[in-house]
């Protein structure tokens, strides 16, 4: 990809692998994200969609710099044109970049919700009016602030987590599966909040498996599969139909949506320990040829988007 202007967040050829013990004392590298490139601009929502186990959360953690110690990162990550070194990431975390984590376990079980949403630091108390406003918008009763995480339902916990990111002045919000468990109305409200943030000139990276919801709010969709992106399309491409999409997997995803025939795709996403040698999608692809099995295709520009496929036209 050629960088024409400065992105808010620019991830190029990111690979994340874990060192782990295989059998006995044999160490093995398990690659969970390979050769991934995404970028987020100010004023836009990029939705990263993909099924569970495709490494989406790890992408979020890699950007925040909070991967476990046995993880190794390759590739380049830039924030506002500056290389994201661990020191820089530490400065950005919670100030410039906010994370919406994906489950209630990310809340301290022994601390009242309000104190957690306000966060640490001296000026935490000043955010109380803002907190009331956000709770109100997310249909969280004021009494929720006085409760402990175990007292929250799944949807309430998710909304509390969303509020933690919105209450700061972060320029980039990374939301990791923010909506499951919420009622449709609340999920839409949550995404509307992200949309507003984007319209204010901030960037949002939305990680989700709910394509339908993402389509209506996001500007761009990155289709994520087995640790890498297969296609980058505008959400308009998804809305206008199968023909506008580029990658066979994206097309299959489109066909699997309830309103488009609800047609499932055979096979399974490969496990990160046993990836195929060529194109990651080749074992399930109807267009698969010899070269697909031998070589991983590069990301290439096609019809205003990007695709990782030899055959896409």
């Amino acid at each position: 990809m050629v960088c024409k202007h400065e992105h808010l967040l620019d991830v190029q050829n990111l690979s994340v692998s874990f060192k782990m013990y295989d059998r006995g004392l044999v160490q093995k590298e398990l690659k969970v994200i390979s050769d991934l490139s995404v970028s987020v601009d100010r004023g836009e929502i990029l939705a990263v969609v993909g099924s569970s186990g495709s490494g989406k959360s790890l992408l979020a953690h890699a950007i925040m710099g909070i991967l476990p110690e046995n993880a190794a990162i390759q590739g380049a990550m830039k924030y506002q044109g500056e290389d994201m070194t661990p020191e820089y990431q530490e400065k950005l975390r919670g100030r410039q970049i906010a994370l919406v984590p994906q489950s209630v376990t990310y809340l301290d079980p022994l601390m009242r919700v309000e104190k957690q949403v306000l966060g640490a630091g001296k000026d935490a108390k000043k955010k109380i009016p803002a907190l009331k406003g956000i709770f109100n918008r997310l249909e969280l009763d004021e009494s929720v602030g006085k409760q402990y995480p175990y007292q929250l339902s799944g949807g309430m916990a998710r909304r509390v987590l969303v509020s933690t990111a919105v209450i700061g002045d972060a320029e980039l919000v990374i939301a990791d599966e923010p909506t499951p468990g919420m009622q449709t109305g609340q999920a839409i409200e949550a995404l509307r909040i992200f949309r507003e943030l984007a319209d204010e000139g901030k960037g949002v990276l939305l990680i989700t498996h709910d394509i339908d919801l993402a389509l209506n709010f996001a500007d761009k969709i990155a289709v994520f599969y087995a640790g890498t992106t297969l296609e980058l399309a505008s959400s308009g491409d998804f809305l206008s139909g199968e023909e506008s999409l580029r990658h066979p997997y994206s097309k299959a995803l489109w066909r699997a949506m309830p309103q488009n025939g609800f047609e499932p795709l055979d096979g399974f996403q490969p496990f990160s320990g046993s990836l195929p040698s060529g194109c990651l999608f080749s074992p399930r692809c109807s267009m698969c040829e010899k070269q697909c099995r031998q070589k991983i295709p590069e990301m290439r520009e096609l019809r205003g988007g990007f695709v990782r496929c030899f055959h896409a036209t």
Partner: peptide
């Protein structure tokens, strides 16, 4: 734990 990871992510 996850909550300490999140605290870290929030810049604590």
């Amino acid at each position: 734990s996850d909550y300490v990871l999140f605290a870290k992510a929030r810049g604590e």
